[in-house]
Simulated assay, not measured.
Amino acid sequence: MLTALALFLAACLAGVVNALAGGGLLFTFPALVAVGVPPLLANATANIASWPGYVSAAVAMRRELGQHRRWLRLLLITGVTGGITGAALLKVISPGFFSYLVPWLLLLATLLFWQGKALLAWLGHAPHQVNHPLLRAGSWLIGVYGGFFGGGMGVMMMTLFSLSGIPSLLTQNALKIFLSLVLNTASVIVLLATGLAAWEHLPPLALGYLLGGYAGGRVMNHIPQHWLRRGVVGFGLLMSGVFFWRAYV
């Protein structure tokens, strides 16, 4: 019961963070490893459990998404193909190699979350016209990364949308949620088909993601972003250090 409660709370927080900025895996992945799930299985389980959160966040932002159907069709194709490719990579990679890769992925996700705005400023202002080739190629690559690991992909998406010429932050965030839902749906199908899931931990995680995702989508404009950012970055750096210690010491 205590394990289920801890995973539920971690998933609630992850669902809110995913809806607001991305980076929820920084909470659920370490929580699963802490209760004894091997890293490769924990990563797959966290990805599967996050699906209800993306669904509820997309429902909460359905009006904004309905105004941009032309971009949704493009992201649907790239998200599905990228998510399937990334999830398939998890099946062929060795658990030992993944354990060594985890701390680097966590650190990358944390740094992207932390310095996402600075990265945008360094890259310069987005063009006035939407760059569809860049949007198509970039969203596929992010789909591969999201299907494989996913931590920090929200910042990658926001960066891509800005560079592609989508100016509104609200629109960028809505498209981020849609692309996350699409690639996550595709990767979940692959992961379930290949048996990469700790089934006993999915119910509390899925419920937490569902509630957190909807809450994040509803209160997106009312939570101080700097509070959220500092908390996620601090936790991400801590978990990166823990996993570096586990893998290399």
Rank of each mutant, 00 (worst) to 15 (best):
L134I: 02
A193D: 03
F161D: 03
P127D: 01
G83P: 02
W199H: 02
R70G: 00
N184L: 10
G208D: 09
A197S: 10
F161G: 03
P167L: 00
G116N: 04
I189P: 10
L207Y: 06
T194S: 12
G208L: 09
F178G: 02
L207F: 12
G150S: 11
C12K: 01
G165R: 05
L207G: 03
A31E: 14
L170M: 13
L191H: 05
F148V: 05
S56F: 11
Q225G: 04
I93D: 02
F161R: 09
Q67S: 13
L170T: 14
L72C: 00
L169F: 09
V155Y: 11
T81V: 14
R218M: 11
S50V: 13
T78E: 00
T28G: 07
A42M: 14
V190S: 04
V17E: 04
L170Q: 15
V17R: 03
V242K: 14
A137H: 06
L90F: 01
N43Q: 09
N221L: 15
V102Y: 02
Y209I: 04
G23K: 02
G82M: 06
L20M: 12
G216S: 08
Q225S: 06
L170S: 11
Y209L: 04
S168A: 09
V190Q: 05
I189W: 11
A126H: 08
T194P: 01
N173D: 14
L107N: 10
A21K: 03
G154F: 13
H132F: 07
A60E: 02
V16G: 05
F161Y: 12
W122K: 06
G79P: 00
P39Y: 09
T28Q: 10
G147H: 12
A10I: 10
L169T: 12
M61T: 13
G236Y: 11
L163Y: 01
F243P: 06
L40A: 15
L202D: 01
W227Q: 10
G216Q: 04
P38A: 02
N184F: 11
Y209R: 03
A4L: 06
Y145P: 07
P203C: 15
P52C: 14
F113S: 04
A126L: 10
